[in-house]
């Protein structure tokens, strides 16, 4: 896992909204869609969290400080921050899915008085896989936000927290389901189960928002790769209201 911070030296791109992504190019290797994971209050610092899984992300992760890379963006529809004002906010993140939610958390904490209860429920594979661990610990010390982290499994010696799936944290979280906005990001399976658990808890589908991931080449709806039924993930998302995609999520290999 790598954090890549970019200082733009070309024409400044528009300030990114929480949940948007950039297309990053490692010259001579290729381009990949990478979500912005930094503080939206600092638009001059473009922070990306990268998992080195393919040739492009490997090449990006190997860049030395000062090296040049290509950037297009920001793209896509982000988290509905305005809609969350005045309501409780439940954030459910899984694995690397915490990265695109981090700008939303920064925004919530920066404008804390605008929102009701704020719950951040995060599931990771193991204690070693927890993203932004120090930051989560510092947020945990705040009294105006609940941060709960669970892992799928842990060696007894290095974890004293929750072990189990992230949905088990929901039952312990304090929020008013009728007046809650939920922001969910993680593997698609995890998001389906989270959306179902939120629904069971009384949160309406229209108040649940998911961030989807698909192969993307152009980020502007022209290359066709990220189609998910009638929508282009890059252009119409990546953040969708659950009721807009719930029917599509039922189909395998769509």
């Amino acid at each position: 896992m790598w954090t890549l911070e970019i200082e733009p030296d070309g024409p400044a791109s528009a300030a990114a909204a929480p949940g948007q992504f950039n297309m990053l190019t490692a010259f001579g290797v290729g381009e990949a869609a990478i979500s912005l994971s930094g503080d939206p209050a600092e638009p001059g610092r473009l922070v990306h969290t990268i998992r080195a899984v393919g040739p492009v992300s490997h090449a990006l992760a190997q860049l030395r400080p000062g090296a040049a890379l290509g950037l297009r963006g920001p793209f896509g529809a982000g988290w509905p921050m305005a809609e969350a004002a005045g309501r409780d906010v439940v954030i459910m993140a899984g694995g690397l899915g915490l990265a695109p939610l981090r700008p939303a958390i920064y925004r919530l904490l920066a404008e804390r008085a605008r929102y009701g209860q704020v719950q951040v429920l995060y599931g990771a594979r193991s204690p070693a896989d927890i993203l932004f661990r120090r930051e989560l610990e510092s947020w945990r010390r705040r009294l105006d936000v609940e941060i709960e982290v669970t892992v799928d499994h842990a060696a007894v010696s290095d974890w004293r927290g929750h072990v189990g799936v992230v949905t088990t944290l929901l039952g312990r979280a304090a929020f008013d389901p009728a007046n809650t906005v939920a922001l969910v990001c993680g593997p698609e399976i995890m998001m389906r189960f989270c959306a179902a658990a939120l629904g069971d808890a009384g949160v309406k589908a229209e108040a649940i928002h998911l961030s989807m991931e698909r192969n993307m080449k152009c980020a502007i709806g022209l290359c066709g790769h990220c189609q998910f039924g009638p929508v282009f993930i890059c252009r119409d998302g990546p953040v969708f209201r659950y009721d807009q995609v719930a029917g599509l999520l039922r189909h395998k290999e769509l």
Binding site: T25, F27, G28, V29, G30, E31, K217, C218, L222, C223, G224, H225
Partner: peptide
């Protein structure tokens, strides 16, 4: 049909 991919080379 309009779908495309991109290839980078050096």
């Amino acid at each position: 049909c309009f779908c495309t991919s991109v290839e980078d080379s050096s």
